[in-house]
Design a protein around this nucleic acid. Sequence first.
DNA 1: CTGTTAGCGCCTTCAG
DNA 2: CTGAAGGCGCTAACAG
Lengths: 336, 336
Amino acid sequence: MPTIRDVAALAGVSPITVSRVVNNTGYVSAETRERVEEAIRLSGYVPNTLARSFRWKQTGMLALLLTDITNPFWTTVARGVEDAASAAGLNLILCNTDENVAKQDRYLAALAQKQVDGVLLVPAGEGREPIRFLQRQQVPVVVLDRALPEALADVVRCDSEEGAYRLARLLLDLGHRRIALLNGPADVSTACDRLAGYRRALWEAGLGPEQEIVYHGSFTVASGHEMACRVLALPLRPTACFAANNFIAIGALKALNEAGVAVPREMSLVGFDDLPPALVVDAFLTAAVQPAYEMGRQATSLLLARLSGQAPAARVEIVLPAAIIQRRSAAPPAST
Amino acid sequence: MPTIRDVAALAGVSPITVSRVVNNTGYVSAETRERVEEAIRLSGYVPNTLARSFRWKQTGMLALLLTDITNPFWTTVARGVEDAASAAGLNLILCNTDENVAKQDRYLAALAQKQVDGVLLVPAGEGREPIRFLQRQQVPVVVLDRALPEALADVVRCDSEEGAYRLARLLLDLGHRRIALLNGPADVSTACDRLAGYRRALWEAGLGPEQEIVYHGSFTVASGHEMACRVLALPLRPTACFAANNFIAIGALKALNEAGVAVPREMSLVGFDDLPPALVVDAFLTAAVQPAYEMGRQATSLLLARLSGQAPAARVEIVLPAAIIQRRSAAPPAST
DNA sequence: CTGTTAGCGCCTTCAG
DNA sequence: CTGAAGGCGCTAACAG
């Protein structure tokens, strides 16, 4: 690994001159530049970014902490983030927290030490702690997807409450009155918001808390399957299910299939989140679709703006709308 | 940001003593250690990993370059890599090359400068060049998924030739004689291997080159769609299609649906790669399934072994088998 | 057991 | 236009 000094020796100049050539700073005569460039070529010199980072305290790296890259929603977000980072010449460190606070904290500690320039965080759990930590370490952070208790940090998310409201509303408008919500963990903001939207729609339709049918599980296929089974076992079976994310929807659909329950004839199903068109041959699920790629992109833009000091001083919260896509999985309830 | 010197001053010792306490190296009296630890707590000192990396020439970072994280196959590979890296205390930089050599080269240059400890590479294009580059820069590299012209580097991949052979064989055994291969780019090793396997099966069944029906496109839904359309327009329509990856299969299935061609009644379809069970409600496609997670995991293990000098001196090539999963998309051809 | 010296590769500051 | 000195934060190697 040749260093700047080797190149300098080869070109018969001082290291600083090489530095000037490499970075295009200050004055260098055309002739000297020529000689230096030749020496660089000959030696195969590559500037050591580490030394540079060390001096400038800038690493050219962002980190993205999300629950699980395996979920197409997160995959799409990640792609949006990576594209934006890459376009700005930054690299992206990917971390799967699996909604596990300890794992998240371990990652954050390592990342802070590595002096990443910024963090995009989908907070596991409640989120106050890790953000405080990052701020203490002076690491700029943008929170992705989830709302925050106070205006602790910049947030880019989707309007889950409104999306859930409209999705529940759609079921109500079709005539459903017994709608089961298969939700994620009660302590995740998106799950809360989706519950709130569901609740608002029911309330508006004159259905009180006693008409609510709410299950809390996790955002996984297994959990969706399990919750759907419990719904099917109910004495007075609901006519529709509302899955709070894509995996829950898939799990529920599997359970319904296994039980021989026809969708939407015997049971309507809607879901928050969609599967990307590239993964689905024949889209079937009526869903609230979040602009996943755009969320990733915008969160990254915001973070980059913060890094370069171009963002407004106050915390920013960007809330993107979800789109309701009607397909075939929701229909009026069977007339009983 | 307090430095080691601040802590030293606070504790009334020299910086090196603090270093010894932090890293648990050398002798420090219990009493001194006490004092130093107190000073660390008071000052909120966090060791600067950057400076450390700089001295040690070890960054604790691996990079993964793949074509597109958006494809569930790669997502799964990435998850395997990240899990293994994380377990070893390393972070992972994610790069999408989109099968674009220029983009790949830009990434590699940046990564080499950043002194990542190692690279997991799914080479875009032919692969010789970028590997040479990394080796010149002394960056250990393990090639993922794709075979290499010579034994240039360690490789972890799946046996595409054999998998494709068995998949084609399955169609032949069902009685198909006109089988169209909807393949990826001719210059990608996996596409070559899948063609070779297809060819071998046909050959064994007594079908020569003139019976081969081969399209080369890209590993995308759009390309799969387009190639399937061309197949459908053929005067003597094939009775089966062999999609060389999951996206091509999905595109093809879309095209067949649009054209009202019943699968498998009027056209059988098999694919290389599957969709993860979590993404599919009712698995339908007969496929050769690669152990994606395992590929990622093993490639990372191998890379880690290299980093710690525990791997054998010679280049290693690990070839994992694909599993043939029979489902409902392949059936005997309609009797004509 | 603890401290001093020196240097990793680069770049800012200030003199030539 | 070019170079010399010095230091970023940390830690070997070698004293004490």
